[in-house]
Design a protein around this nucleic acid. Sequence first.
RNA 1: GCCGGUGUGGUGAAAUUGGUAGACACGAUAGACUCAAAAUCUAUUAGGAGCAAUCCUGUAUCGGUUCAAGUCCGAUCACCGGUACCA
Length: 838
Amino acid sequence: MSNYPFKEIEKKWQAYWEENQTFATTEDLSFPKEMRKYVLDMFPYPSGAGLHVGHPEGYTATDIYCRFLRMNGFNVLHPMGFDSFGLPAENYAIKTGTQPRETTEKNIENFRKQIKSLGFSYDWNREVSTHTPEYYKWTQWIFIQLYNQGLAYESQKPINWCPSCKTGLANEEVKDGRCERCGTVTVRKNIRQWVFKITEYADKLLEGLDDLDWPESVKTMQRNWIGRSEGAAVFFPLVDGDEKLEVYTTRCDTLFGTTYMVIAPEHPLVEKLTKPAQKVAVDEYLKKTAEKSDLERTDLAKDKSGVFSGSYAINPVNGKKIEIWIADYVLISYGTGAIMAVPAHDTRDWEFAKKFNLPIIEVLKSDIDVQESAWTEDGTHVNSGFLDDLNKEEAISKMLAWLEEKSVGHKAINYKLRDWIFSRQRYWGEPIPLVHCKHCGTVAIPEDQLPLTLPEVESFEPSGTGESPLAKIDSWVNTTCPVCGGPAKRETNTMPQWAGSCWYYLRYLDPLNTKEFVGKDKEEYWMPVDLYVGGAEHAVLHLLYARFWHKVLFDLGVVNTPEPFKRLINQGMITSFAYQRADKTLVPADEVQDNGEGIYVEIGTDNQLEKVIAKMSKSLKNVINPDEIIEEYGADSMRIYEMFMGPLQVSKPWATSGLSGVYRFIDRIWRLGEEREISEEAPSDDMLKKLHKTIKKVTMDTDTLNFNTAISQMMVLVNDIYKTDNLPREIWENLILLMAPYTPHICEELWQKAGHEDSLFRAPFPKFDEKLTIDDEIELVMQVNGKLRAKVTVARDISKEDMIELTLSNDKIQPWIKDKTIIKKIAVPGKLVNIVVK
RNA sequence: GCCGGUGUGGUGAAAUUGGUAGACACGAUAGACUCAAAAUCUAUUAGGAGCAAUCCUGUAUCGGUUCAAGUCCGAUCACCGGUACCA
């Protein structure tokens, strides 16, 4: 391509910024609170594959915003680091025997180099990596705070087990019933786990969402995930014995329609409720469901399964004896693991009742026959004793009063949110800092003995028993109790990857502090995060877990804001084009011929292909490597292209041809500087107006992160400069400053060439004069019946009357209105006139 | 199934509170420069009719509100993402 020497320029200025510490940030108290901004990127996991084009998208966006803020006088904190514990490094270690630390640190080095090659204005002095003992000392310290608050407990709950990885997986790591990493179908297995009581914070996490400047869709997803519902706990007495079976229901008003009960196969009362006559059938059913993977449970969902326990309960509202069944459509993890079935008005109960011939009683009036299908809408109560003729709300409150009066139930609140299984049976994670002592029980390691470091091991293979590889190292496991000094064993579970990312935004504030996880003054100086940018895939889990930890830390008084992230933006995914055959299969990009005009043909056949958008994947050969792009077009082009593609928040397909367009744009600016002499004369009024309009649009669009339209406006200005034959300093320097946040390297170079010694990031962002953004003349649009018929240039402040007068007498308008009756004349000042005729 | 999102030229996309649809860019076509190519520059580029001035149609589809709809309302279709029996 052309000759703009981006390689030398980019190298030169990246070195300059590093040498001069241009972007190092301090807690300068002369900046008032509102002039401090904390702008945060979601830090990457340093994978062996290196940076992909999706990473620079969010990073470029925040970088532009930060550079813009600094030029506008803000003190900006903009750090970067690495989420460096994680399974890929461990799996690689199992395969090759390479220490995960070695692999990880090599990858980090590569990532850092790649990120730096884009010229981002991070304060690298604050870099953190979650796998370093200096960092995870404090991850362990926070764990102990949660433990001391009673928010961590051990549990034998069934968990997802991957037979291939030989490790337990949390629910979020199982996709479609398969291990997210290796694809093996998972099974259930009981294992001892550390669990966090995130449910205790359900209400706080829910309420906290209200005041956040987050996308409404993310807030909705979090609300749904927490899944708060109000209902009732109802106690059903058993026919045999004194025990009661507790259920949770949101529709206690349908209690008269309850014709049977169901408990989950994992329910603690299963054994007790199973009668000898049913024992064989129940055991067989339990065995079958235990062997089922989550995938199979889901697949079989269409066809309900279950078994009668042999026991009966009494419906407290009418004294009727009803059967108790065991079925896996009832989940042990929600409510009490037991339900009252109302088949007439619940599709799941109806299907089950039909299959096993259980009675169906209508209690909500409708036009349909509940023997034929379930009625799940509202209706007036029937067959319901004291609730008859009432509507839903009235019936619920009357039933609640009745339940409480008779002491057979009460109001209850339930959440879909489950407690968070926090332990992993893996090597490459933070060791959980606990010791098991025969005398003292479970004991936290004292703070002065942290960090509890991860020992070097020979083998990274899972133990196969479900324990982590740490369990095999006797010298590490056997220790002394910090309380009594007697022999004790270390906890061998490690923490999940979420742990490090739950609080890294706090460590950036004070990364070298050896006394505290973050100094109070620094935390108060910067928090909360003003803008957090990252992928939408973290909408629920990472953001919910981080909020949970933050709220615990807030309740402990060690941070001063109840929420960590004030404003959140999800960047869209960068996709790629792919080519699809008629049968919807995809063809790799290198086997496609472009015949122009949107026609694509598969090479070697005559198959015409459809151009579609797909995720980048190795097999489709449509993965873009940022290193190659930077090598060929330069970092400035890469940056500005990713912003020019479209709005930050939407996903958009990569097209290298589009990149060459923005390259040309930068090249055109470079050539302006090369080919023209900077003139000290004042610019023409026309150019001055064009400049101020551009400053206004770029300022507003950059502030609101609408980078694509800001860039197009700068292109317009450059095109306008090309139409003239001089280069007034006022125009030129303002253009350089406007562009600086977007393409910082070339702008520094041009700024220096224009005669400045200091970095242009010490210069203020251009200001616009509102007067110069307004034209004296406007183009008046003349419409007849809403259709454009003429355009005339008129003075901006023309009166409505004159506008109409001008329109009616216009030559082009005349033919459309003569011989017609004018019904209405509408004039919008400064815009248009519409004449309505009949 | 349910929840959320998106449908605008050959392509990526623009379009304050409803007020000129298609800014900007890619691609394409033609021309200039060149021995030639690349690069660069200039012009055209939603579709259709016409020599032209102009006119007609057009923002997934159908309908509605309005002087005026890409934008608001209702229904439908397509695609993308999330989710999996939450009582």
